[in-house]
């Protein structure tokens, strides 16, 4: 009500008094900027600086010894392997789900979208727990697995499952709104011009969604490499076997090897920084592409 009345009688905003009233007084500006920057410095900048300060607190030699330790290298290797498997799996799923949801109407579509988001609502600890309940020694399939000599919990497959579960929605939730916004005209044109489904996907769909897809993959990868809670529950913490980088950091920290823990943690902090930069660059490119 009020705003409709207000709009009818709206004056020219260019008049100086109105422009002045639209701008916050200088002291308000200064206070709000100071509050915002103070909050960001205290909660974000300081912790980030602390990671690197602690990492190098024992000197360069200690730093490099910590990150080239064979057990640390094993943890790095396992983290890379896990990401190399769960990232493509969830990316393929994301593209596939986005195609079905953004290009077709069917019953239960909204339910499907909600279900895809489900893993984000589940605590990491519970994400690990459900796989223990299924595949653990006391789990539903436990006796059968033991009989056949298959190890999932406290082994690499469990870490893979938990990581893939945790990172499940990332690509799909980026691509669904993007593809809905883009519409299907170009794809329909390709098909009516005689392109096969695969040709249409490679020549039209993939180029159109590549930035959004990459954006989802960047976020997915960061989470896959950094996941702690879910992996911690299923890993069993076997040194040099089932330890990922975050788990290795935890072990070092709990053994009071603080500078070694932070040295290894600094690798993850670097990954976070690279992720933030890549995210920004992609956001910038996506905006530019939308404008052109």
């Amino acid at each position: 009500m009020t705003s409709a009345v207000l709009r009818e009688s709206a004056a020219d905003p260019a008049t100086p008094s109105v422009r002045a009233a639209l701008q916050d007084p200088p002291w308000v500006r200064a206070t709000l900027i100071a509050l915002a920057l103070g909050f960001v410095s205290l909660f974000l900048l300081l912790p980030l600086l602390a990671v690197f300060a602690q990492a190098f607190s024992g000197g360069l030699a200690t730093y490099f010894a910590a990150i080239t330790d064979p057990i640390a290298l094993q943890a790095i290797r396992l983290t890379l392997i896990v990401a190399a498997i769960s990232v493509p799996l969830n990316a393929v799923f994301g593209v596939s789900a986005a195609w079905a949801i953004a290009r077709f109407d069917f019953r239960g579509k909204n339910l499907l979208i909600t279900l895809i988001d489900l893993p984000f609502a589940v605590s990491p600890v519970i994400s690990g727990l459900i796989f223990v309940l299924l595949f653990g020694a006391q789990g539903l399939l436990g006796p059968w697995l033991i009989e056949h000599g298959i190890k999932i919990i406290f082994a690499v497959p469990g870490i893979l499952l938990a990581t893939t579960f945790i990172t499940f929605p990332f690509v799909a939730r980026e691509l669904i709104p993007l593809m809905q916004e883009q519409g299907s005209e170009e794809e329909e044109a390709a098909i009516s011009l005689g392109a096969s489904g695969w040709q249409m996907f490679r020549r039209v769909t993939l180029p159109n969604i590549r930035l959004g897809l990459l954006y989802g993959i960047v976020l997915l990868n960061a989470r896959a490499m950094g996941e702690f809670g879910a992996v911690s529950v299923v890993s069993g913490h076997i040194r040099g076997k089932t330890n990922t980088i975050p788990l290795h950091v935890e072990i070092l920290y709990n053994e009071y090897q603080s500078s070694a823990a932070f040295a290894v943690a600094s690798l993850l902090a670097l990954l976070a920084l690279v992720t933030l930069v890549a995210k920004r660059v992609l956001e910038w490119q996506i905006r530019r592409e939308k404008q052109s």
Partner: peptide, 29 residues
């Protein structure tokens, strides 16, 4: 600052955990 706001999404939680603990411990910054 805008880009930096996403740090908690990107920084693995275990790293955040040990860092905040070290900052807030008796002899921390």
């Amino acid at each position: 600052v805008d880009a930096f706001v996403d740090l908690p999404f990107a920084l693995p939680t275990a790293v955040a955990g040990i860092t905040l603990t070290t900052l807030l411990a008796k002899n921390g910054w």
